[in-house]
Design a protein around this nucleic acid. Structure first.
Lengths: 199, 199
DNA sequence: TAGTATCCGGAGCGTCGCTCCGTTTTGTCA
DNA sequence: TGACAAAACGGAGCGACGCTCCGGATACTA
């Protein structure tokens, strides 16, 4: 549907020179490592230093921070997107598929330091990241939600966009706080979505 | 219970010199104005310029950004805290009181640009703000929640801290997006909290 | 009015995002 | 192979920001 690459990153194969491709990979792995320890807000200088590369090289390959983040997590986002339909086929019910898919999504978010924060950031430094998530994941969520409604598992009226942003929001903030587990609240939310068992 | 002033702000009356007190007020109103347009993340320089004051003056009165934010919103936080018990007395049920109180809390959060973001910020630049909210509001929420559980309105087991942070989290992000209204999700969450009507 | 504790202001330092341009590398073609 | 142009590189440099430091101004006191 969209162009081949993610948001604005340069296509992985169109590039002519070999050193450019090599550097692209180097930057990508360095960024992945730095993101783990310093979050997706890590200074570009730090990533450049780790990659043994100038800052301009990073900006050349990934004009926006969102492009870099997207490229780093592209595979996992894709996997999450592809899990939707297959869960729908394998789960006991559409609602269960939705639940399991949301579990996947939450697992992805909470293991990436500061990713949820970036996604909902009201600065638009990450606007492109937000857009990419939406482009890729919103249709999946819509399909699951519609299926659950059609099966009578949940009440109708919930907008997929709102649900996804809500879930993302619940994953925002300090990690590793034993007093706060977004999964519990999301379970509560899904409980509220469930249709009363009186047809 | 806690010390008289908010987090770390200087006490409003203990100050000796008149110009210091005058400047404190000037900074406070300037900050309030700037927060409306630029959010609680506005540059200190901007607030200082608006107040016609040096930056050091602001840092002297409010060593941390959290102190400044807290001082600006102190009255409203206080009002929200005090609304708890009176709602419990006036509402139809404890659960209704909880609902109305959460409405108040959400209204407060969504009308302050970036405040919810700051509250849950992963950086600890706002740790003191987080602490102040908790100190002041968590007991109120706990009381309302306990009352609702005791009345049999909602199922037990929900931790007040988790609920409050969840609500705060749901208010995070871009404002004025017609596709996302945190109130709808919060209603869903409360629905999930409600005890099935089969005692 | 003189003296002093208090408070004020903004220059200055370090960090970060992002760009600009001289230099180096790579692919190509004679 | 050797030369040449296009492509890519790297880091100095600029503006913005958080926060501090210290010489100067100001308000209480006697």
């Amino acid at each position: 549907m969209a162009a081949e690459g993610p948001v604005g990153g340069s296509p992985p194969s169109r590039s002519k020179r070999a050193d450019a491709q090599r550097n692209r990979e180097t930057v990508l792995t360095a960024a992945a490592e730095v993101f783990v320890t310093s979050g997706v807000d890590a200074p570009i200088r730090q990533i450049a230093a780790r990659a043994g590369v100038g800052m301009a090289t990073i900006y050349r390959h990934f004009p926006t921070r969102a492009d870099l983040v997207t490229a780093v997590y592209e595979h996992q986002i894709e996997a999450c997107a592809e899990a939707g339909p297959s869960l729908l086929a394998s789960a006991d019910s559409p609602f269960d598929a939705l639940r399991q898919w949301i579990d996947l999504f939450v697992d992805f978010l909470v293991t990436k330091h500061g990713l949820a924060d970036a996604l909902q950031s009201d600065s638009d430094r990450f606007a492109a990241l937000h857009a990419y998530f939406l482009d890729r994941l919103l249709p999946v969520c819509t399909q699951l939600l519609d299926a659950a409604v059609a099966a009578g598992d949940i009440r109708p009226g919930t907008q997929p966009y709102e649900l996804m942003r809500g879930i993302g929001n619940l994953c925002v903030g300090r990690d590793n706080d034993p007093r706060y587990d977004p999964r519990r609240l999301i379970a509560l939310l899904l409980q509220g979505l469930e249709r009363p068992r009186t047809p």
